[in-house]
Amino acid sequence: MESKPLATLVIVEHDNQSLSVDTLRALSAASQIQQDGASLPVTALLAGYQCGAVLESLKCVENVSQIIAIDAAEYKHLLAENLSMLVVDVSKDFSHVLAPASTFGKNLMPRVAALLDVGQLSDVVAIEALDTVVRPIYAGNALARVRSNDSTKVMTIRSSAFDPVAVSSSPVVESVFTPDAVFAAEHCEFISQQKIESERPELPAASVVVSGGRGLGSKENFALVEQLADKLGGAIGASRAAVDAGFVSNDLQVGQTGKIVAPQLYIAVGISGAIQHLAGMKDSKVIVAINSDPDAPIFQVADYGLVGDLFEIMPELLEKV
């Protein structure tokens, strides 16, 4: 088996303007990969276009020993088709390659693993040793301890399982390497991106999330969730049933096939609590459930439960908040 230096590479997710909170959490996970009680050196790979602001932010992140920064038009949209080739090229000097288990990471890392001819460790929630991690299976109802013998450990990190790494007020990373490794995406091109703009915080980064489910009955009634979220300065989420019914767009879905969140406060309104939904929010610090069915599964994970008609409870709650 090929012997590699023991070091960790974290792929940076960003929008060419700012770091994603998921990257800060992946960097936190990277610091937990240790040998003899000491963390392996962590290198952050930043590829983008006119992303100087991201680089300056990255220089202030604790626990990063080196930054590899590549600024080229080819990486403006972070297409997996060519970014994966860059990661493979850089990864020859690293034993572990990490990325957030976000849409970005789920798009990129399987391609990286395939090009390296290794397996992928997905949705990692704990790191126990250099070759051993823990990941959820069966919609989070069980945890599997997985050991990898691959020379390169490729893994995606479930952000909700790790706190963000500390960020200094001034630069702390002195080593910045800027190679000329540019790979073009020969067989695909970026056409457009449809992104809903909102003044509310992004779901993964929000400390408060208010989610609505099928019990709200209509898109108009979902306004109750929006009003409560706005009063609490939180983000809006939804169950799959609410998304399928057209109450909100699918980018707000919380669950196994949606966003995985772990805010300080999660309020579930009219959500029964199917396994698929619980997998996406049960790690929240405080869970409040509002449902008319006292036997709804959501109450099994809730810290506080309000049993009653949400159309009576919500107006009263909005008045008192």
Rank of each mutant, 00 (worst) to 15 (best):
Q120I: 15
L143V: 01
Y304I: 15
L79F: 12
A262S: 15
K153D: 03
P136E: 00
D295N: 14
Q276C: 09
Q35W: 09
I260G: 00
L115N: 13
D303W: 04
V12H: 07
G212T: 02
P294C: 10
V165L: 09
C60A: 12
A245G: 08
H187P: 01
S91T: 10
V288K: 04
V301G: 04
I196Q: 11
F162T: 10
V10A: 10
F104I: 06
T156S: 15
A166L: 08
L24C: 12
D150G: 04
V208G: 03
F311A: 02
P315Y: 12
E56N: 13
E186S: 14
G258L: 10
V154K: 10
P164Q: 13
L306Q: 05
V124H: 11
R25M: 12
L265K: 05
P41A: 07
A113I: 08
V12M: 10
D244T: 06
F299I: 08
Y304R: 11
N63G: 01
G217Q: 03
S239L: 02
N221Q: 14
L317Y: 05
Y304F: 14
M85V: 00
V286G: 03
L86N: 11
V209M: 12
I287S: 11
M281T: 01
A139V: 09
P204I: 06
L278E: 05
V133E: 02
T156Y: 06
Y75A: 08
V112A: 14
N63Y: 07
E174I: 00
H14F: 05
A238H: 01
T257E: 05
E316W: 02
A241K: 01
L228V: 04
L143D: 09
L79C: 07
V90Y: 03
V261W: 07
V254Y: 04
G258Y: 03
V87D: 11
S3Q: 15
H187T: 13
V42T: 15
S218Y: 11
Q193R: 13
V165G: 07
I68W: 05
P179V: 03
R158E: 13
F177M: 04
A223N: 14
E56P: 05
H96K: 06
D283P: 00
Q227H: 05
G119L: 09
V225H: 00
R214V: 01
L228Q: 05
I290C: 03
C188I: 13
E13N: 10
A114V: 11
D293E: 14
S148D: 06
G258S: 07
Q50I: 02
K282P: 03
L203A: 12
Q66K: 15
G305S: 10
P110F: 02
A206W: 08
A206S: 14
I67K: 09
V269Q: 01
D36E: 15
L46W: 06
V88K: 13
P5I: 03
L115Q: 14
A241H: 02
E81Q: 12
R158S: 14
V307W: 08
T152F: 01
V54F: 04
A242E: 02
A47Y: 09
P204G: 05
R25L: 02
A274V: 09
A129T: 05
L19T: 08
S20V: 00
L24D: 04
Y75P: 06
V118L: 04
K59T: 09
E197T: 14
V12S: 07
K92G: 08
S28L: 02
L6W: 05
E312R: 14
V97L: 13
V88H: 03
L24S: 12
A73M: 06
S175V: 14
S102T: 15
